[in-house]
Design a protein around this nucleic acid. Structure first.
Length: 265
DNA sequence: ATTGAGACCTGTCGGC
DNA sequence: TGCCGACAGGTCTCAA
């Protein structure tokens, strides 16, 4: 998409999690994508008009490029061979590529933000630091968790505390840090809000887990063999060396939490 | 103000 | 094979 122009935008089904913004199609058509970026789980395309296309994939959203991005675009291609009923939006780009947004569960979101709206967006503007940035450190995490009566797991899922962690990697990071997901969030900070050792371990674990996950994603071979430490491993042995624990599953705030009751305290 | 529960929507999987 | 309930990697809203 980068450097290409929206030639035609087809909204085949206008009801994702939120309705599409007014004049969605005309605000995109004719615009060139100047840059692609990301904030938390939101994908952002900067348009030549100064507006920003915002996309969230929800639980089941994905983009499919026809033809694949790694080949040249033969003339007459960029056609969709068969209509998938979950292809809700179709972008025809000036590069010849057709890009379909597919989302069976329709938990995704698409929006177009005016230049000023980026800074005032109710969700974007309240997001916490990017987990892989230097802004996410023990002091920042401790400050955000100080006084919180909720669980550590819930705090990690709160996008205002740290942006972009989801259920799987929150759980993975807690296991790596040896911290119980049920521990009260405030216990990683002193009453004054200064970081305890737990906060340092957790920050380090979050960064490691995400770096590892990205590395795996970029390498198909290791992605296939990707093995979580706790996620979806109920009843299986803990992977920490010399730990004899068995992974348990508990529902926490409506989400499944997997953890080792022995080495996570 | 913070917190947890329920809702949103569809597909898949395991058990009977 | 077929039906049914449980569950799914994310937000958002509402009520306590």
């Amino acid at each position: 998409m980068r450097g290409a122009r929206f030639e035609q935008v087809d909204v085949r089904r206008p009801d994702l999690r939120k309705p599409f913004p007014r004049r969605f199609r005309v605000r995109l058509e004719g615009q060139t994508v100047l840059a692609l970026s990301r904030r938390a789980k939101y994908l952002l395309a900067t348009l030549s008009s100064g507006e920003t296309l915002l996309v969230h994939l929800g639980m089941s959203g994905s983009f499919c490029i026809h033809p694949p991005a790694d080949g040249p675009v033969p003339p007459g291609l960029g056609e969709l061979t068969e209509a998938d009923p979950h292809d809700h939006v179709l972008f025809r780009m000036s590069s010849g590529a057709a890009i379909a947004y597919n989302d069976p569960r329709r938990f995704g979101v698409m929006d177009v933000l005016s230049p000023g709206a980026l800074a005032t967006h109710p969700v974007l503007s309240t997001l916490g630091p990017e987990p892989l940035s230097t802004g996410f450190d023990a002091a920042a995490l401790a400050r955000a968790c100080a006084g919180k009566r909720t669980s550590l797991k819930a705090a990690l899922l709160d996008q205002r505390v740290v942006a972009g962690l989801g259920n799987i990697y929150a759980g993975e990071a807690l296991h790596r840090a040896g911290l119980s997901p049920h521990r009260r969030a405030s216990t990683i900070a002193t009453p004054a809000g200064a970081p305890r050792e737990h906060a340092r371990r957790l920050v380090s674990a979050v960064k490691q887990v995400l770096r590892e996950a990205i590395r795996r994603t970029l390498n198909p071979a290791s992605y296939r063999s990707s093995r979580f430490r706790v996620y979806d491993r109920e009843g299986e042995p803990c992977r920490r060396s010399r730990c004899a624990g068995v992974i348990r599953r508990r529902t926490q705030a409506g989400r499944s939490t997997f953890f080792c009751p022995l080495c996570q305290r």
